[in-house]
């Protein structure tokens, strides 16, 4: 049992399947949610799996550098920025329409 675990560390394929699974779940969340905040959570999941891939390929292709990690930091930063603007818009939307249901907000005016 111990030898099996030690001699079979997770390979590239395992990592990639994991991150694409997380990405697909994020896509599902983005498309199926009606609550705008729920959609944003799906986006965060997808972004997160992208960042994970960057770090993975960093360690895989150039373990002595940190280029992939820098990319991940940029992704995290942009995700935070996007969340802030998104949340501000949702609060505004709620003040105008008394709901954050995406299917209700189909008009450019109120």
């Amino acid at each position: 049992m111990l030898e099996v675990l030690a001699s079979n560390p997770p390979g590239v394929f395992h990592w990639l399947v994991l991150s694409s699974l997380l990405f697909s779940i994020g896509v599902y969340g983005m498309l199926s949610r009606r609550n705008a905040i729920g959609v944003l959570m799906g986006v965060e999941l997808a972004l997160n799996s992208g960042a994970l891939n960057f770090v993975l390929f960093n360690r895989l292709l150039a373990p002595a550098t940190v280029d992939g990690e820098v990319m991940s930091i940029f992704i995290v930063t942009v995700a935070a920025a996007e969340a802030v603007v998104g949340m501000a818009i949702f609060v505004l939307l709620f003040k105008q329409m008394k709901t954050v249901d995406m299917t209700q907000a189909s008009q450019m005016r109120h």
């Binding site: 949610r33 009606r34 609550n35 905040i37 729920g38 944003l40 959570m41 965060e44 997160n48 995290v76 930063t77 995700a79 935070a80 969340a83 802030v84 949340m87 949702f90 609060v91 709620f94 709901t99 954050v100 249901d101």
Partner: peptide
């Protein structure tokens, strides 16, 4: 950034927008 920032922000906005009452989700 995520746990201390974004998730706290999300929880905050959920409270502000009464999204939890959006039972029709």
């Amino acid at each position: 950034v995520y746990v201390g920032g974004i998730v706290v922000l999300i929880v905050y906005v959920v409270m502000l927008t009464r999204s939890s009452d959006l039972a029709e989700d």
